[in-house]
Amino acid sequence: MNKKNIALIVSGGEGKRFDKKKPKQFFKINEKTILEITVKKFVDSKLLDEIVVVCSKDYLNDTKKVLRNQNVLITLGGKTRQDSVYNGLKFCKKFKPSKIIIHDVVRPFFSVKFLNDILKKIDRKVCVIPVLKIFDSVRSIKSNNYSDINRDNLKLIQTPQGFNYNEIFNAHNRFKNLNITDDSLLAYKNGCRIKVLKGEYFNFKITEKSDLERSKIIIAKNMNNTTRTGSGFDVHKFTKGNFLILFGIKIPFDKSLEGHSDADVGFHSLVDAILGAIGKGDIGEHFPPSEKKWKNKNSLFFLEYAASILDEEKFKINNLDLTIICEKPKISKYKEKMKKKISKALNIKLNKINIKGTTTEKLGFLGREEGIACQANVTVSMKNDFDF
């Protein structure tokens, strides 16, 4: 089994300096744990063939719970960081990887572009290490001694770091009795050449609780505040039948809705709203009713298609406001099921979805109970590396 690129995310530390009861990777930024934020960024990058998380035995169940919706593998670490990385490397051996990225879980602010640059520059005897220059004065303070340290050749080392898998595995195997906190030094000791890459200022290691506040400030300053809106409207008339479908939920009724596909007026209006928000036309352009292949098609397919375009264009949904307009059936008892269906299809939280039901007070074709209409409004914004 050959897996060309693998990421090894080190999440074995217990960080007692940060908190005595809970490791820092389980603390939250914007309602998501640091562990989830970091791992999801690797998953969403689509740059890796496999992602392996190394965790402490004591927090295995917590790690599995946080990552239950992520396509990753989890293995156990050791007593030290070096032991944990070595255990992870041994676990990855079965995949016969070519390149491996090693990253500390508590650095969630690296960019995907940066990760890609590191992968491209890895060579057999070359490991790629991000570094930052030190601009502050550096002093050695010990007892009564206060002395200057020349900062010209000093660098701050970051992760992610990139290696040829065999080279870093051999280095860890050869120096497994040492206790070194940085993998690049082991690689260097084993004969690898170090290629330094300018690090990213925001890619700091969360070490103290004050870093959480610093994180929130960084996120607030770097969020993309450009918001776009889209609206959709659809209507279908009643026909003979004994059920109808609204937002993917089958509702018993004495009529059905007439349409080329499954006549899900809710999903159709929502698809139009999403396409409109990102300037991608309307549902009829993508799925012409004149084409037989869309006959009786489940409209969930159309919504998932719109979601895929949304993702390709690097947009995220901020809010959905949906209004079903009809005299009958009453939809109040189905709203939560509808929200869950939409939430799963678009991979968004339930609190971003609002569904309302209203009537036209017996006016017009809807008031005469000739059909159902739905109006959808959506707001979206561009994704960036600080969207969690």
Rank of each mutant, 00 (worst) to 15 (best):
P97C: 10
F388Q: 09
K295V: 00
P97W: 09
A263P: 05
V126H: 12
K292F: 13
K16G: 02
F267I: 15
D182N: 06
S343W: 05
L197I: 14
N222Q: 04
V196Q: 13
E36N: 12
S184R: 03
A307I: 05
V378R: 06
I206D: 09
N224D: 15
N144A: 02
N30R: 11
V10K: 02
G371A: 14
A306F: 03
F27P: 00
T323K: 06
L270M: 14
S261D: 12
L270C: 13
N222C: 07
K121T: 10
E327S: 10
I251L: 03
S45Y: 14
R214K: 15
G259M: 11
I9L: 07
M223E: 12
V106G: 00
I29Y: 10
T226D: 15
L363Q: 09
I317S: 08
I134S: 01
R139T: 04
G230Y: 13
R214D: 11
K113Q: 09
L246D: 03
M1V: 09
R124L: 07
I348W: 05
K20N: 09
N150Y: 07
K250S: 08
S45R: 10
K176G: 03
G77N: 03
N177C: 02
T323F: 11
L178E: 07
K280Y: 03
I324L: 06
Q70R: 07
D49N: 13
K93M: 09
